[in-house]
């Protein structure tokens, strides 16, 4: 039996018919057509599907769409300004070469924004610990950590990786 779910996605009210077992990431990608949020593992481990629900980073493969009823959801598509100006975290990933193949990037950027919100001034060790649940298989952590650090604690950036 399908049920109706209404949620705010990137500032817009969206309503969809879902099965109770529909995952939030399935609603976003398959029904709302927002494929910026990726599914890497589907087992809560890789972090490619990280989005914000009520301003907190969560793994959208491990949340039901019906659990997002009435919630405020922000995905990677919602970070840049309407005129296309990148969010400072996106700009930092570009500037510090924080991506290689790009598959983990949406989750990394969303987690980076969450880290910046919770832990302003965090040091490099803290940033690395906070990325526990986000896996990059290109082993590009150096640039990712540097990009996030450049936003949360610019003085702590020791090197600068360029593309």
């Amino acid at each position: 039996m399908k049920t109706k779910v209404t949620l705010n996605v990137n500032g817009q009210e969206r309503t969809a018919e879902v099965e109770p077992r529909t995952l939030l990431v399935e609603l976003l990608r398959d029904q709302l057509g927002m494929t910026g949020t990726h599914v890497g593992c589907d087992t809560t481990q890789c972090g490619c599907c990280v989005i914000h629900v009520d301003d907190k980073a969560v793994k959208s493969c491990t949340m039901l769409a019906v659990q997002a009823q009435g919630k405020k959801v922000v995905t990677i598509e919602g970070l840049a300004a309407a005129d296309g100006t990148l969010h400072p975290m996106q700009e930092a990933f570009r500037d510090h070469h924080g991506l290689q193949c790009g598959f983990c990037t949406p989750g990394m950027v969303m987690m980076g924004v969450d880290i910046a919100r919770r832990l302003p001034g965090a040091d490099e060790k803290t940033v690395r610990e906070q990325l526990e649940g986000n896996i990059c298989r290109c082993t590009g952590y150096q640039g990712i950590v540097e990009a996030i650090l450049s936003v949360v604690n610019p003085g702590a950036v020791k090197e600068h990786h360029h593309a």
Binding site: T44, V50, A57, K59, M111, D114, E132
Partner: peptide, 9 residues
């Protein structure tokens, strides 16, 4: 426990 996203849920 787990990771930051898991700790939010």
């Amino acid at each position: 426990i787990g990771d930051p996203a898991v700790r939010h849920r």
